[in-house]
Design a protein around this nucleic acid. Structure first.
Length: 564
RNA sequence: AGCGGGGUGGGGAAGCCAGGUUAUCCCGCGGGGCUCAUAACCCCGAGGUCCGAGGUUCAAAUCCUCGCCCCGCUACCA
């Protein structure tokens, strides 16, 4: 990718049902932020969008329980999430929401367009309906006894006990999970997106898009070969975007099928707020623009099949996803995150315990890139104490201290380089290349581990050169050593900018640089002599096991006081 | 059940698609060194039937077949 490239960085939209947990944020928003910051640092023009996904039955039901309107509920959650993402230092260009008028209008026009193009048809179907609540029930809102294992609280889509797939009509003694009364089966009309019609186009898109990761390609191709089925796009919910089709009064668009369009509407909204009404087209209609979507593994087919299909069906030449960057799941100490069982840590709680950059660093270092990975406190200690403090922090500090106290705070010139120097300089270059490659592939976990490796190279180099000895006998030798050491330190700081922006900025400030003057490619360069630095300070500190115990205790307190 | 992904020394990862001398890296462990630095850093060492069983090949962690285990999708949960 070149300077000046345009990039659309998209992150899955968090559902406004509650606050995301650590697994949610590393899978989508935090990874996307690292990518967005990296691309900007490379000089690309980036638009980074996401937003709150706020429609659908769970939210409607939750609002009913609380005796408020759904909009009041999502207003509150949206504003909390927005503030939290700020505190997590997420550099969104636009964090929007599906209740935003631009989105609602866009979705309605988009689907009306598809309707007129013949991609939408209607059909009748039989669905569970609760007479008392006067609402149709999604499968999982019907509970009852599992016909296979007899578990009494099986859901209408699947039994949690034996794992078997169910339909609501299979349940013995079915009941509405909201009010407990017995649902009836009622006929209703719905509108469907004719996905099979686009099968060939989608297959072609996937086959021709070599940027898609292999797992996403394989899975998607298989789904297509198995035969795509029409997807229903309407619901009988009140809470949602009104379906625009003739005769669809009272129906809303299914959340899944509208929230993905938010990537486009949020871009439109962003530019129109900036007073550049048409510029969104450069990001969605210019085929040179690249896009990446950060999502969890469960979300792949939606982004490689359904979303592209919608875009193709519109015939507006929207850019299809250039690639998707999916993650496996983050576990908490070996278990799945569970809101009801309070297993895990949520992103609001996290910031009450430790600074943002500690979380960002740890989560990226543990990012589940190829398999499910556990967040463990022991791993946090390891990553923060060894990688961040010892390898990175200490290397930079010892280098800066040496220059500040022994060389008048001025980075010296290089003189004659011997084999060790040359070899080291070559290694810097090859590590820079490798890290850049990893970043370009969005394998940011590997990239971060390599950045720590670069700091280790610096440590090794200093130990080999022993500037604290050579300074007594050979000033020029020492100058060369410290110039190269400082260059490595600066590279490390630069390459940390996407990961831990505020700490990296502090490091660069100590080195007397303004981040606005920094670009990614400077990380491969040796620094010219004569540059004055500021007084170095220790930036990172270690955590002990005792600290962790205290944090866990504090977590309990936070939860106790907020349990209302 | 079908499909996709994963299963590499005590923990975490790379390598696998394009097979090749002693299987790489980080942490941990044992020993040594250094003293500029955050009790940090550097070096050396121990530790692996590369999930299991077959097969292809001069040669398999890597390719093929079968099996086991974990996760996801296939389902109107977002």
């Amino acid at each position: 990718m070149l300077m000046g490239d345009k990039w659309l960085v998209c992150s899955a939209w968090p559902y406004a049902h509650g606050i995301p947990h650590l697994g949610n944020i590393i899978g989508s928003i935090l990874s996307a932020d690292v990518a967005a910051r990296y691309l900007r640092l490379k000089g690309c023009e980036v638009v980074f969008v996401s937003g709150s996904d706020e429609h659908g039955t769970p939210i409607e039901v939750e609002a009913i329980k609380r005796g408020i309107r759904p909009k009041e509920l999502t207003d509150e959650i949206h504003s909390r999430m927005k503030k939290l993402f700020d505190r997590w230092n997420i550099s969104f260009d636009n964090y929007s929401r599906t209740e935003n008028p631009v989105h609602i209008k866009f979705v309605q026009e988009f689907y009306m367009d598809l309707y007129e193009r013949g991609y939408i048809f209607e059909d009748e179907m039989l669905l569970p309906f609760c007479p008392k609540c006067n609402r149709f029930l999604p499968d999982r809102f019907v509970h009852g006894t599992c016909p296979y294992c007899g578990f009494e609280d099986a859901r209408g889509d699947q039994c949690d006990k034996c794992g078997r797939l169910l339909t609501p009509t299979m349940l013995i003694n079915p009941r509405c999970s909201i009010c407990g009364s017995k649902p009836i089966i009622k006929k209703t009309k719905h509108w469907f997106f004719d996905l099979p019609k686009l099968s060939n186009d989608i297959e072609k898109y996937i086959l021709e898009n070599s940027n898609l990761p292999e797992n996403a390609r394989n899975m998607s191709l298989q789904v297509i070969r198995d035969g795509l089925k029409p997807r229903s796009i309407t619901r009988d919910n009140k809470w949602g975007i009104p379906a625009p089709f003739p005769g669809a009064e009272g129906k809303t668009i299914y959340v899944w099928m509208e929230a993905v369009l938010g990537y486009i509407s949020a871009t439109i909204e962003y530019f129109s707020k900036k007073g550049e009404k048409d510029r969104w087209k450069e990001f969605w209609l210019n085929p040179e623009t690249k896009s990446v979507y950060f999502i969890g593994k469960d979300n792949i087919p939606f982004h490689t099949i359904i979303f592209p299909a919608l875009l193709i069906a519109s015939s507006r030449n929207y850019n299809l996803p250039w690639t998707v960057a999916s993650t496996e799941y983050l576990l908490y100490e070996g278990q799945k995150f569970s809101k009801s069982r309070r297993i895990g840590i949520w992103i609001d709680e996290a910031l009450e315990l430790l600074p943002t950059d500690i979380w960002r660093f740890t989560l990226v270092a543990l990012r589940p890139e190829v398999r499910d990975t556990s967040f463990r406190w022991s791993e946090l200690l390891n990553v923060i104490n060894k990688m961040l403090n010892d390898d990175i922090g200490n290397f930079i500090y010892r280098t800066l201290s040496f220059i500040y106290t022994r060389m008048d705070g001025v980075v010296p010139e290089r003189h004659e380089m011997d084999e060790i120097d040359k070899r080291t300089v070559d290694e810097i270059a090859s590590m820079y290349r490798r890290i850049t490659e990893y970043m370009d592939e969005f394998r940011i976990r590997l990239a971060l581990h390599e950045v720590a490796g670069l700091a280790r190279l610096g440590n090794r180099y200093l130990n080999e050169r022993e500037p604290w000895n050579t300074i007594k006998t050979d000033w020029e030798r020492t100058c060369t050593t410290m110039n190269i050491a400082f260059s490595i330190a600066r590279s490390v700081a630069i390459m940390l900018l996407p990961f831990i922006p505020s700490s990296a900025e502090e490091l660069l400030r100590q080195m007397n640089y303004n981040v606005n003057d920094i670009s990614w490619s400077m990380a491969k360069d040796l620094v010219p002599g004569g540059h004055r630095i500021n007084k170095p300070k220790v930036v990172f500190k270690k955590l002990t096991e005792k600290d962790v115990e205290k944090l866990l205790k504090k977590l309990d307190e936070i939860r106790g006081s907020s349990r209302s």
